[in-house]
């Protein structure tokens, strides 16, 4: 990746929030950030710090790489679930 190219981080936060019926504001309070920051992270416009990523991982009980990725996430389907 060139110097001028901005890193983009893909996230499953919208899906995880939807599963738990969490609003951006509620998640923002849990992660101690401004609620708009959640929106920026979800749209890939802001790369979250390690602290935010670890807090999110802890809250959702998932590894960080299951929530954030440098590559787009594959859509969930029966095959991916069966494969583990």
């Amino acid at each position: 990746m060139g110097k001028s190219e901005k890193a983009r981080v893909y996230t499953r936060l919208p899906m995880l929030r939807a599963e738990r019926s969490l609003s951006r504001k509620e998640l923002a309070e849990i992660l101690s950030v401004h609620y708009q920051t959640i929106g920026y992270i979800e749209r890939g416009e802001f790369v979250p710090s390690l602290e935010i990523a670890l807090k999110a991982a802890e809250y959702f009980g998932l590894p960080v790489e299951a929530i954030f990725s440098l590559k787009p996430f594959e859509p969930l389907n029966a095959a991916s679930l069966a494969g583990g």
């Binding site: 950030v33 401004h34 920051t37 802001f46 979250p48 710090s49 602290e51 935010i52």
Partner: peptide, 16 residues
């Protein structure tokens, strides 16, 4: 600008 330049930095998140 939500007081970003007035609020102490310790009270802002990373993005702000």
């Amino acid at each position: 600008v939500r007081g970003v330049t007035e609020i102490p930095i310790s009270h802002l998140d990373d993005r702000l």
